[in-house]
Computed example of a mutant assay.
Amino acid sequence: MAKRKPADLNLLLAVDKPLGCTSHDVVAKVRRAVHERRVGHAGTLDPLATGVMIIGVGQATRLLGMLTLDSKSYVADIHFGYETNTDDSEGEPTRTVEPDQSLFDEEGARRVLSGFLGASEQVPPAFSAISVDGVRSYKRARSGDEVVLPARPIEVSAADLISISLDPESGNPVWTVAFSVSKGTYIRALARDIGRAAGSAAHVSALRRTASGGVGIGQCLAVDGLDAKSARERALDPVATLNLHASSICDEQLEDVLLGRSISAPNGLPVDHGSQVALVHVGQLRAVARVDGDRFKMEHVFPQGIEGVRG
C-alpha cells in the first residue's frame, strides 16, 4: 500500500453551509477547493439547514472527534398548520390542524416557548442519522419501516421569539425563534413538540445554525470562492476551538514530543493533574498532552503541525 502523502494544509476552519446540500457535499467542495483529500466535518447539518459547520483539513481531521461543541445556537422558522414525516418542509404531511388565530399572539407564543426551557427528554425524528441495529434511522424510514426512537436527554437554554409572520403561500403563522441547545438536540423535533404544545401542528421550514460551541457565524467562510490561501488566512485557532490551555515548547522539546516521549511541565501550570494541555511550537499545535504530576504525557502528536494558533 502506498504511503499517504503529507498534507500541505493542516487546519480547522468554519464554513457557512449553503442551503440544499448535504454535509458530505460540503466536505467534497472543500476537498476540491483546497486540493487536499483528507477533509472531514464535525456536526452534521440537514440539507434544509444552513450555517456554521466546522471542517478539519489534513492532520486537523484528527481533532474533530476531540471537539466537544456542547452547545449549538440556531434560528428556526416554525411553520404551523401541519406536521411532516421528516419534521421539516421536505417531508410529506402526516397531521394537519387548522391554525388558530391565537398563534399570532406574541405573549402566548413566548409562554409556549418558555415551557421548553431547561432539561427534558426528546424523541428524535424518525428521519435522522441515529443508528438502529447498525442501520441509519432515515434509511429504515425511507424504506417504509416503522421507526420508534427512544427519548434522550436534551437541554434548551434559550428559546427566544424573534417574530411572528404570515406565510404568503399557506396563510399560516410562522414563528421565528432563536434557540440555544445542548449537543444532540434536534430543532426539527422541538418544532414538532412546540406545535403540539400550542394545540396545533408544526414543522421547521427554515433553519440556520449560528454557533457551534464557541465558533460563530462571523468566523465562517463561504464555500464558493474558498481556496487554500483564504483557508489559511481564516483558519480557526485549534487551541481555542478545543478550549485547552496552551503551553509553548522549545526546539529540543519538540524532538521528544514528536517521538511521543513525555517532557517536563513548567512550574505554576494553571491546570489540574489529569487535564489536557495543547503543546504549541512556533504558532502550530504539535501535540495534545495529559498533565501527569510534573510531566506532560503525549496523547495525540501531530507530525506536520496544525496551523492557526494565535496568542
Rank of each mutant, 00 (worst) to 15 (best):
H245K: 07
A151Y: 15
K72W: 10
K29I: 11
P18I: 01
G20D: 08
S73F: 11
A158H: 13
A206K: 08
V215D: 01
V239Y: 05
V75C: 15
Y74G: 08
L117R: 04
G199W: 05
D77T: 02
V26N: 04
H203C: 01
H41L: 08
P150N: 14
D87H: 06
G171R: 03
K5D: 14
N243E: 11
P18S: 04
R192L: 04
A265M: 06
E299Q: 01
K297W: 11
E90V: 05
E107K: 07
A151I: 14
R95N: 04
G283T: 01
T61F: 02
E121H: 06
V215E: 08
R111I: 11
A76R: 06
I162K: 04
G260R: 06
D77W: 08
V280A: 03
L13H: 02
S180N: 00
T61K: 10
S247R: 06
M53W: 03
A126V: 00
R136P: 07
F116W: 13
A228W: 14
E36W: 11
T22H: 08
F179H: 12
G260Y: 02
V26P: 04
L269A: 10
D294G: 12
G283F: 01
A198S: 13
H24T: 12
L254H: 10
S182K: 07
D46T: 00
G274K: 14
A60R: 00
D237Q: 10
I306H: 06
G108D: 07
P93W: 12
S180V: 11
S180R: 01
S71K: 15
D16H: 00
G51R: 00
A158L: 14
T210R: 03
K139R: 15
T68D: 12
M66N: 11
